[in-house]
Write a protein that binds this DNA or RNA. Structure first.
Lengths: 226, 226
DNA sequence: AAATAAATTTAGATAAGTCTAAAAATAAGA
DNA sequence: TCTTATTTTTAGACTTATCTAAATTTATTT
């Protein structure tokens, strides 16, 4: 009755792959043991153990004391997990009325469900979304991420106009702040003033004037009108 | 990033509770170690280990060599898991075009996802279904199962007319057999003849005549017209 | 370049869940 | 009832994933 699903990889292995994938993107060069440990709230020794295992399975290139990179196989696997995570997030928001600050923990569980048909059908039900509720790209079945030119609000100059297309910080607190001030994906934002001293900005959204700090501006992605 | 979900119980514990719940219903009196081991395709010694643990957690009444019964807490927990399993099955069939013979393995995974909001919203999306795709009752949030008077096709007599409301055997093979012969939940069936010798029957469904063996008739539930 | 600091790995331990093989308890048969 | 068979439990081992503490390697600093 409870025949074990011989999923390719354990939940833990999948979580490591996903983390390494993300770190590799942001840190560019090789990912260190400690970086992984920090990100996953675990101990460096645990990371070392797992890296050995992932290395044996040809998922990472691991050289002692030198950090890791994902192999092609590792990248594909990580992309598949991220794909599942993000499709589930869209589902939760679009079909089950979750707010964008509530989806992460549940998606973290759902991403490990093993069923190709399930994810394909979900994708179809949601009309093949390209971005998740935070504006992050959803890789296709081949592991390729759709590109979208976007810039941080903090990098725009006075007079620029853009549409909000994503957030860098996906923490619940930040998302709730955005909700409170009417900032959401799809909204148009115009930069009215920039304060050099503290990098804060005055912006126009929904014909309302809003002052945002550097912290906000550097976590909000806009797509500028070319 | 990957803070462990401190779900009440592990997947394994939940699977044991669910199995014991089902066995308790069919076997009536206490459930034996071997019955659980058989059902779960595991070894009796593993079952004993788990029973000790479940007993410590007040989920079962366990006396060495005497089998187990679920406590109230155990019943509630089991019902909650079964509730999740069956709601997911409805979702898979209604929203993702799964066939009723494809849902079990996936629901087996999904039933362990820990999110009250998720299951409540799913329930709402599906319009609070009372029965799953095999006609099995979905317990409510209190753990109570909706009742439906139903009888096995094999127990009806010539001339009786009923509507198909469930299956006893939910194996893929049986469900595919039913699909092939146009038998589905909601279909009306009339008993035309019964063969005493081999207990086979001649029935009418969709104005077609069909011969079904004892094996089929004893695994199909009908609701007779009052 | 030697000494110190930081990062990483190893060694050994723990917990959950499972297994095999042996021991103990219960049930069944003569 | 005594003996045998069946069921159940115990004992000890294994795997996965984690941890702490110690050892090792790499990086930094003077």
């Amino acid at each position: 009755m409870f025949e074990k699903f011989q999923t390719m990889f354990s939940d833990s292995e999948e979580n490591y792959l996903k983390t390494i994938f993300h770190l590799e993107r942001s840190l560019k060069d090789g990912v260190s043991t400690n970086a992984i440990a920090d990100q996953m709230q675990t101990k460096a020794s645990s990371v070392t153990d797992m890296l050995k295992k992932l290395s044996e399975k040809q998922l990472v290139n691991y050289i002692k004391y030198q950090g890791v990179t994902l192999t092609e196989k590792g990248k594909k696997t990580a992309a598949a997990i991220i794909r599942k995570h993000r499709i589930w997030e869209v589902f939760l928001v679009e079909k089950l009325d979750f707010n964008w600050d509530e989806v992460h923990d549940v998606a973290e569980q759902l991403e490990h469900i093993d069923s190709e048909k399930l994810i394909d059908q979900l994708d179809k039900l949601l009309n093949y979304p390209k971005f998740d509720p935070h504006g992050d790209p959803i890789p296709n079945k081949d592991g390729n991420f759709p590109l979208r030119d976007k810039q941080l609000l903090s990098n725009l100059k006075v007079g620029d106009i853009g549409v909000c297309v994503g957030v860098k910080d996906t923490s619940s607190d930040f998302l709730k702040y955005l909700d409170k001030h009417g900032i959401a994906l799809g909204k148009q934002i115009e930069i009215l003033e920039k304060e050099e001293f503290d990098k804060s900005q005055k912006i126009k959204i929904d014909n309302q004037i809003l002052h945002v700090s550097q912290q906000i501006a550097s976590n909000l992605f806009l797509k500028t009108k070319h």
